[in-house]
Computed example of a mutant assay.
Amino acid sequence: MWRELAMEFTDVELHDPAIAASLSDIEERLGQPIPLPLRALLTETDGIAAQYGTEFIWTSERILTENLDFRRSEQLKALYMPFDSLMFFGDNGGGDQFAFVRTPERDDVFVWDHETDSRTWISPSLERFLRDALASGGDDWYRQ
Rank of each mutant, 00 (worst) to 15 (best):
44 E>Y: 03
24 S>C: 07
130 L>K: 05
128 R>Y: 10
54 T>W: 01
56 F>R: 06
87 M>S: 00
60 S>R: 01
101 V>C: 15
110 F>H: 07
42 L>Q: 07
115 E>Y: 15
80 Y>H: 15
39 R>V: 04
88 F>W: 09
111 V>F: 09
138 G>L: 12
46 D>Q: 08
71 R>E: 04
52 Y>Q: 12
94 G>E: 08
33 P>A: 15
64 L>P: 06
98 F>V: 10
112 W>F: 15
70 F>H: 15
112 W>S: 11
83 F>Q: 03
121 W>Y: 15
91 D>F: 02
47 G>L: 00
68 L>R: 13
83 F>D: 10
51 Q>P: 00
34 I>R: 01
120 T>K: 14
9 F>L: 00
1 M>H: 14
68 L>D: 02
54 T>A: 01
28 E>D: 08
57 I>Q: 08
79 L>M: 08
123 S>P: 08
2 W>Y: 12
17 P>W: 03
48 I>N: 08
69 D>E: 14
116 T>R: 09
127 E>C: 09
120 T>V: 15
49 A>W: 03
36 L>E: 15
3 R>E: 15
19 I>H: 11
31 G>N: 00
39 R>D: 14
28 E>W: 02
42 L>N: 07
81 M>H: 15
72 R>C: 04
54 T>L: 02
76 L>A: 12
144 Q>A: 15
137 G>D: 00
97 Q>F: 09
42 L>H: 05
22 S>A: 00
55 E>M: 02
4 E>H: 05
28 E>R: 13
